[in-house]
Every structure is written in C-alpha cells, then in structure tokens.
Simulated assay, not measured.
Amino acid sequence: LYGDFTTETWRKLYVRINDNPESRYQYVADGTAFRDDADFDRFKKNYEATVFNHSDSMLVVWCFRDKTEFLQEDEWNRLDLPVQERMYNGQLVKVKIKKDMERHVTTFYRIELPPITY
C-alpha cells in the first residue's frame, strides 16, 4: 500500500485536513498542526515527507523522524548548515538542519540557553 515505507525506519503520521474556516490550522496531526499549505510544505521539505491520500479529509504522511540537539552558541555558529526559524513552545527560534538520508532522521540544532538564576 505504501511501497517500501515501514515504521521500523520511518515516522508515520495521519494528518486530518481541517475544513473549518474558523480554525487556526488547516492540517492537524497527532502532536503537530500546520496553519496553511506553506507551513505544511516546509514540514514536508524538512522531513523528506511523502504524502498519500487516505480519504477526502485524511492524509497519510511518511517522513523522517526528528531529533533536537542543543549546542553552545560558538559551536552552533561553526556548523555549516542551513538556518531556519521554527516554533518551539510558542517561541520562534533559529535552528540549523542536518538530514541523515540513510537513517531517515532530521536533526535540528539549537543554541543551548544559559540556565535561569534567581
């Protein structure tokens, strides 16, 4: 049904197409949501996603798994990788992205923030 995709090496998402015009999100999946086509397209590019139609209102998405690594700012600056802004817990942060095409993993490198002291 889905070719060579298996959950052994890929992440599988069911994405519901939201037809409610009042909703903030056009696409909703378990643990994530996408505001519009551009947001969903960025996800598909970052995660090397392949999309299958499951029904009129549901998609099956096979994509890379993800990993986040925190680095010191000087180490992050030395990485020769593309930079992108991403939302994490409601905050826009800069990340650098590296893809492992063999293991099907997208790694997002973030700058480790200093601890908060009171």
Score class of each variant (00 low, 15 high):
residue 2 Y to N: 09
residue 8 E to D: 13
residue 9 T to M: 00
residue 9 T to L: 02
residue 13 L to E: 13
residue 13 L to F: 07
residue 13 L to C: 07
residue 15 V to F: 05
residue 17 I to D: 02
residue 19 D to W: 11
residue 20 N to H: 03
residue 21 P to I: 02
residue 22 E to S: 08
residue 25 Y to H: 13
residue 31 G to I: 04
residue 32 T to R: 08
residue 34 F to W: 14
residue 34 F to M: 09
residue 37 D to N: 12
residue 38 A to I: 02
residue 40 F to A: 14
residue 41 D to L: 07
residue 41 D to E: 15
residue 42 R to E: 15
residue 42 R to T: 11
residue 44 K to W: 03
residue 44 K to C: 10
residue 47 Y to P: 06
residue 48 E to A: 11
residue 48 E to H: 07
residue 49 A to G: 13
residue 49 A to K: 14
residue 51 V to N: 08
residue 52 F to E: 09
residue 53 N to R: 15
residue 56 D to H: 01
residue 56 D to A: 05
residue 57 S to I: 10
residue 58 M to E: 12
residue 61 V to M: 11
residue 61 V to P: 13
residue 62 W to D: 07
residue 66 D to K: 13
residue 68 T to F: 09
residue 70 F to Y: 11
residue 70 F to K: 06
residue 72 Q to T: 08
residue 75 E to F: 10
residue 76 W to T: 04
residue 80 D to A: 06
residue 80 D to C: 00
residue 84 Q to E: 15
residue 84 Q to D: 14
residue 85 E to K: 11
residue 85 E to D: 10
residue 86 R to C: 02
residue 87 M to Q: 06
residue 87 M to C: 04
residue 88 Y to Q: 04
residue 92 L to K: 00
residue 93 V to L: 10
residue 93 V to Y: 07
residue 96 K to A: 05
residue 105 V to Q: 08
residue 106 T to E: 10
residue 109 Y to A: 01
residue 110 R to A: 01
residue 112 E to A: 12
residue 112 E to M: 15
residue 113 L to A: 14
residue 117 T to Y: 14
